[in-house]
């Protein structure tokens, strides 16, 4: 029992480490990993870095809604240049953007067993232009997160 708790904590540390690394490398304000529940379709934000408050702990996004829901449903990355201008749907469909007061964000899908089961998000609290190198860095660290997913889904 104790051993399992230790394993869970260690896994959490590994996820958070990647989030921190990403935040440093891309000089962003917020990074988060959104994951779909193994049973059902709801999506939560279990691992974040640079958060302003604890709202992310209570947020549950529906499949296909919000930035994480859309990325998981479509299996494609999504970029928001200047929230809430030119977004698809209403601003209230992007709770993590509202909660963390983000203006620019980019999210990419995280694959597990060949299907999108999560999203890795980076966000800025002021308008920011992402460079080609940023996408490359994000992709590389996204692979690191994907390697942790089998352990995460085995635990949950």
């Amino acid at each position: 029992m104790e051993y399992k708790e230790e394993q869970v904590q260690e896994l959490e540390q590994q996820f958070l480490l990647v989030c921190d690394q990403l935040r440093q490398q891309l000089s962003c304000d917020f990074t988060g990993v959104a994951l779909q529940k193994i049973q059902g379709v709801d999506i939560t934000w279990p691992f974040v870095s640079g958060n302003r408050n604890q709202k992310y702990k209570y947020i549950t996004v529906r499949y296909g809604k919000g930035i994480a829901g859309r990325v998981i449903a479509s299996g494609s990355p999504m970029e928001i240049v200047q929230f809430p201008d030119n977004i698809i749907g209403k601003s209230t469909e992007y709770p993590i953007m509202l909660a963390e007061k983000m203006i620019t964000a980019y999210a990419m899908p995280l694959l597990w067993q060949g299907s999108p089961k999560g999203a890795l998000l980076i966000g800025y609290r002021s308008k920011h232009r992402l460079e080609e190198n940023d996408y490359v860095n994000l992709k590389e660290l996204g692979k690191k997160v994907e390697k942790l997913l089998p352990l995460y889904f085995a635990e949950n």
């Binding site: 408050n53 992310y56 702990k57 209570y58 947020i59 549950t60 209230t92 709770p95 509202l98 909660a99």
Partner: peptide, 8 residues
């Protein structure tokens, strides 16, 4: 509302 926006 709480599960959508994280506000208690």
């Amino acid at each position: 509302f709480t599960s959508t926006f994280g506000i208690i």
